[in-house]
Write a protein that binds this DNA or RNA. Structure first.
Length: 108
DNA sequence: GCAATGACTGGTA
DNA sequence: TTACCAGCCATTG
């Protein structure tokens, strides 16, 4: 079993686990969703305890997957039905971004 | 308790 | 579009 995640880590894991299939969230959005820490902090937690949650639903603010897991993450996102851009190296944040915590501005 | 590391972000070239 | 730099934060040794 993995080491006991800190209160902050637990919060991050809970937020990532709350992301519905077919949607993604950026590291900075997760930090904002939990109202604590920052993208760096979320990334640090994901790197240690990300295996306990659907980490593949967390991408860069640019819609780019995490370094070292690009293929793995893209494959999982594609399987979830996430709108991808190009043959499959980037995610359409404008369409895949989850609006469950941050009421994004729906320009429509 | 301090220093180093890293799955981050925004700005500039 | 890609590449590089400085700032920010949590975890580990």
């Amino acid at each position: 079993m993995a080491a006991t995640p800190s209160p902050f880590a637990r919060r991050v894991l809970d937020a990532v686990d709350a992301i519905p299939s077919g949607h993604v969230l950026s590291y900075g959005d997760v930090a904002e969703y939990i109202g604590a820490g920052s993208a760096r902090g979320v990334g640090a937690v994901m790197a240690r305890f990300g295996a306990e949650v659907p980490w593949h639903r967390v991408v860069m603010t640019d819609g780019r997957p995490a370094p070292g897991h690009e293929l793995r993450q893209l494959a999982l996102l594609r399987a979830e039905g996430v709108p991808l851009r190009a043959p499959g190296d980037r995610v359409q944040m404008a369409r895949a971004r989850w609006d469950g915590g941050v009421v994004a501005l729906r320009s429509s």
